[in-house]
Every structure is written in structure tokens, then in C-alpha cells.
């Protein structure tokens, strides 16, 4: 699926950029834009040039983001290792067993994956994005340990991911901060609407995931695999 979306995005970008350049060329927009600055810079004055620069710039940004994650990752993975060793994570996992058993039927009880997932969801709810990503990745590593096919996502991983992307945040800190900086009379007005919207998204996502898993399991049972 991702293969097609990725291919589609890049193809559309290139064809659309080229198309609008050709259109602009014949409607002579490009020439006037360039003339007003006194010189022609093909990289900036054509859509196709802008798309190319954007691609190269984004490749650099991706590495910066990944490198930037390393320190925070190390901090949280270190802390999680201590919590795992002491049995703290197991206690945490046991406490939320009634919920997680239903969402993740294939994960053994008090598996470290459950503890990491709970920590990640709690961090997301509080808007602690610095802690949420490392904890989420830790959860993915634990889920990978019990995944029979190492290059393919397991059902449990997808359930976790969908809960994560529709994340219910009690404090949407970024949005509130920007609203406040622009002089809103009531910056935190969005809190309740955002929680309701995110809850609906989570319910729809989890229902969809569980429906798909239900039918896939049935088909598997029918074909006897």
C-alpha cells in the first residue's frame, strides 16, 4: 500500500510541476516573474526546479531529525532498561491488563511491550512529545521481538500505531501556544473539541483495525494456514 502512495506522490509532483511550468511558459508568466527580478534563476523560477530543491533539502532535514532523536532516545531507553530490570514495567503492564488484553490478544500478559505502549500513550496524552517518540519506538522493538515475520508489520503493531496516530492529547500545547501568540481571547478553547475529535478518530481507527483483523483471521482459519 505504502509503495503505491509513495510512487503516486512523487509521480504526481513531477508531472504536475512539469505541467504547470509548460502552462506558465505559454502564458508567459515565468518570463514576467523573472524579468521583475532582473535575471532568470531556473531553480527558483520553475516549479520543477522548486520540486527538485525541496527533495534535496528534505533529505538533509530527515537526517537532522534522526540525529536529533539520538540523545533523547538514549535517555529514555536507558531509563526504560532500569524499569524493565527492576520489574516496574511488569507492574505497570499488569495494572492495565483488562484493556490491553482486548486490544492486543496475541501479546503475552505482562510482556514489556505492554508497559512501553502504556508509557507512550500516557506521554502522548500529556503532550510530552519528547518522551512519547522514544517510548513508542521502544514499544515497537518489544513488539518486533514477538513478531514472527520480521519485515512485515504484525496486527498488534498496526493496532498500536493507529491508537498512536489518532493520539488523544489532553494538552495540545503547540496549537494553544500559537493561538496565544496571535492574541486569541481564549487560546485553550480548542481543548475539548480536539479531545472529542481525537476520541472519534481513535474509535474509528481501532474499530477498522479490529474488523480487518477479524476477517483476516477468519480467512486464515478457512484456508488452514
Amino acid at each position: 500500500m505504502l509503495n503505491y502512495i509513495w510512487l503516486g506522490m512523487i509521480m504526481i509532483s513531477l508531472l504536475f510541476a512539469a505541467g504547470s511550468d509548460i502552462y506558465d511558459h505559454f502564458s508567459e508568466k515565468q518570463v514576467t516573474a523573472a524579468e521583475s527580478r532582473g535575471q532568470v534563476n531556473l531553480n527558483k523560477d520553475t516549479k520543477i526546479g522548486q520540486v527538485t530543491s525541496a527533495a534535496i533539502e528534505a533529505a538533509g532535514t530527515a537526517v537532522q531529525i534522526a540525529i536529533g532523536l539520538i540523545g533523547v532516545m538514549a535517555l529514555w531507553l536507558g531509563l526504560m532498561k532500569i524499569a524493565e530490570e527492576s520489574g516496574f514495567i511488569k507492574i505497570l503492564a499488569r495494572a492495565v491488563k483488562p484493556v490491553t488484553r482486548r486490544l492486543f490478544p496475541k501479546i503475552p500478559d505482562d510482556h514489556p511491550a505492554v508497559g512501553a505502549m502504556i508509557m507512550n500513550i500516557a506521554a502522548n496524552m500529556l503532550g510530552l512529545s519528547n518522551a512519547a517518540t522514544p517510548l513508542g519506538l521502544k514499544a515497537m522493538e518489544e513488539l518486533q521481538k514477538i513478531n514472527p515475520e520480521k519485515e512485515t508489520a504484525s496486527d498488534d503493531m498496526i493496532t498500536f500505531l493507529v491508537i498512536n496516530t489518532s493520539a488523544i492529547t489532553i494538552v495540545p500545547a503547540t496549537a494553544i501556544a500559537i493561538r496565544a501568540s496571535l492574541g486569541s481571547a481564549n487560546p485553550q478553547q480548542i481543548v475539548v473539541p480536539a479531545i472529542i475529535s481525537a476520541t472519534v478518530a481513535t474509535i474509528v481507527g481501532v474499530t477498522a483495525v479490529k474488523t480487518i483483523q477479524h476477517f483476516m483471521n477468519r480467512r486464515k482459519a478457512a484456508t488452514g494456514r
Binding site: M9, V51, T61, A66, A74, W76, L77, P134
Partner: peptide, 29 residues
């Protein structure tokens, strides 16, 4: 535990490059 932090950071680079490049191109076009 912290030792793994570096490995994870490096491991996500190719995936992040692929995704961010496609999104950036799409936006620019």
C-alpha cells in the same frame, strides 16, 4: 539501554528520507 539510542536513530534514516522527500516534493509541486 542508552546504547541502543544511537542504533535506532541511524536505523530510521532511510525511512525518514524516503518519506520526507516524497512529502516535500508533493508540497513544492
Amino acid at each position: 539501554g542508552a546504547k541502543e539510542g544511537f542504533e535506532v536513530g541511524v536505523r530510521i534514516i532511510p525511512y525518514l528520507v524516503a518519506m520526507l522527500v516524497a512529502i516535500a516534493m508533493f508540497r513544492a509541486s
